[in-house]
Design a protein around this nucleic acid. Structure first.
Lengths: 365, 365
DNA sequence: GTGAAAGCGCTAACAG
DNA sequence: CTGTTAGCGCTTTCAC
């Protein structure tokens, strides 16, 4: 027993046209009394508009597509959550597809989404930089999120790795460290390079010469972190602190340190990067800079929505800065540990103004 | 310049009906020559069917809705991934919405999905057990996944916590342990209770009396695990092994053990549960039973799809058993560590037969 | 202010 | 085998 517009119109004794005008909040003039009646009847009958039919006419589906290269990456879920929470504020829904790090799958996904008439597409953690010809032809807007390689491009929202690294190293400097090592990510990755640049910039700002011998490249993984730490342990004198480019390697470094009979933070201060959930679980708890995945997702959705509204947003790359979470691995005094935010960098907030969703996952992961 | 059926039909010199029949692979008889021509023209013109229009007629959108109570839970992403990978094999897409553990939001989500004409709904990690009246009225099929509380219900796919616990304890027994403690989850949770039952059953099967003093309740969290371990450390004699109901508490237990000067696995063997990603990161690496989220997702999608096809699936609760991952925390010999699977329990596989997706994430998380 | 009617792109009777 | 035609539920001119 489907209740559609006709049902409502009949019950209210008006034409479908009128019913439609009332229920779509169109600006067409309607007598207040009529409006009242239609609204009530619709309510009473439990009328729900059929989106398919509506969309076919209006060409607006209130649905966007999200293509995630890897749903299982620790950053993807909070990004998607951010996207969804924003979309919800504007009454949109996200159709999420996994692309599996595979260009063919991705192309298929684009096709599937396009034929379902999504209004735009967000690419999450995409390894690719150019959309397919099909997407280009469709004229639908799209946004890249957390693009992993390559140079800045328009229509993308990414973490501000440079500012984050500065945050981390400034913290160590504030604590009095002057010999600070860096375990970097693989230099093929854009974010790894930016973190190195932030590390250098922070030291230079304090007139501390860069010591190449204290910079070791890891591979983001536990084993790589272990190896990098072994290398650093050969240095004489040892550095007093290490900025590690991600939490997993930081963990490994702490493990290697412990095996070598050194204590964290007493003998060595460690700052990680990412603020993955497990960084709170180890002892000592890891001090780290968050990769603000949730906020990145929100911004991406906001950007896409703005484009959908026809706001001619001509932003270059939007960078979102994480926060420093001071915990135990640097031996920072308890007072600093409650300090939540040190804002340096180029955080962009304006797109979200007036639309901040209720949840505060701002620095989730 | 939109190319629709009419365009194709005109170009091919046939009626829209014929074009439609060709392009939908309907079993209506068509002259081979005509078919050929239509297909070619459609191809050449880059014809893409308009899903909205098609769906409006057929009432089949090839889209199902997924409502996740918490997208940020570690189990949700692999479940969703499992769902999607299955759906892909049958050319469906999943519309994913977050319900935020909130009944009102959930009801809204159901409404949003229904009005977008999804063909069915999967509830992931749902705390609720009954669908809304609206969903009931819609007659659309639905499936619960990894339901967290309550008794078995139809249309649900859940982890086999009982069998998993047996797996864990049997492993310890095989290694020669006879005094095995259990740090349990909060007994308000169905899965926590089932894991306790599995623990008891395994011991009883070997005629080992249950010692209530060796059973302590935790709260799933790190702090709870710490407290539980402190309690166990008061026991004389100490047990020689502990089955901990989840990985986070297992981690905490190992921490407390280390603080007390005891070594894992030399002085105490530990088995966890869940196989969360970080369980491989700690040293010693945690031996644990997986919560087969990915497979659960697949099964749920398979079940829903079967219902969509009208296969009258009248299964009760479907239970999926995890696997034991033998790593370092029990001191098992190297030969056992390569042993991948010990199958005990009630794993249900038949639904997936012939449709196993290519990926093997079978025990992800 | 309100209603009648056209039509979005497609599928499925029904004729031929 | 193929074409004509009637809608699916909705929005939107265009009349009144």
């Amino acid at each position: 027993m489907l209740v559609n517009l006709t049902t409502v119109a009949k019950a209210a004794g008006v034409s479908v046209a009128t019913a439609s005008r009332v229920l779509t909040q169109s600006d067409h003039p309607i007598r207040e009394e009529t409006r009242q009646r239609v609204v009530e009847i619709a309510q009473a009958l439990g009328y729900k508009p059929n989106w398919l039919a509506r969309s076919m006419r209006t060409e607006r589906t209130h649905t966007i597509g999200v293509i995630a290269d890897d749903l299982l990456s620790p950053f993807t879920p909070p990004i998607i959550r951010g996207i969804q929470d924003y979309l919800k504020t504007v009454d949109y829904l996200g159709l999420i597809v996994n692309a599996d790090l595979d260009p063919t799958t991705e192309a298929d996904a684009i096709g599937a989404l396009l034929s379902r008439a999504v209004e735009g597409i967000i690419f999450v953690e995409s390894f690719h930089r150019a959309p397919t010809a099909e997407l280009e032809r469709s004229q639908k807007p799209y946004v890249f999120v957390h693009r992993l390689f390559g140079e800045p491009i328009k229509n993308s929202v990414v973490p501000d790795d440079f500012a984050g690294a500065v945050l981390a190293v400034e913290h160590l400097l504030t604590l009095g460290h002057r010999s600070i090592a860096h375990i970097a990510g693989p230099q093929g990755w854009h974010s790894a390079r930016r973190r190195v640049e932030g590390y250098r910039a922070a030291l230079q700002r304090h007139n501390i010469p860069i010591n190449p011998v204290l910079m070791v490249e890891g591979n983001w993984e536990f084993e790589g972190g272990l190896a990098a730490m072994q290398t650093l342990l050969q240095r004489h004198p040892l550095p007093t602190a290490i900025f590690v480019a991600n939490d997993v390697m930081a963990l490994a470094a702490m493990d290697a340190l412990r095996a070598a009979g050194l204590r964290v933070p007493e003998n060595m201060a460690i700052v990680g990067y990412d603020n993955l959930s497990f960084s709170r679980l180890f002892r000592p708890k890891l001090t780290t800079v968050s990769l603000p995945a949730y906020r990145i997702g929100q911004q991406a959705a906001a950007l896409l929505y703005a484009k959908l509204q026809g706001d001619c947003v001509a932003l270059d790359e939007v960078r979102i800065c994480g926060r420093l979470y001071v915990r135990e691995s640097c031996g920072a005094p308890a007072t600093m540990r409650t300090q939540e935010e040190l804002n340096i960098g180029t955080t962009v907030r304006h797109l979200l103004i007036g639309r901040q969703p209720a949840n505060d996952f701002s620095d989730l992961t």
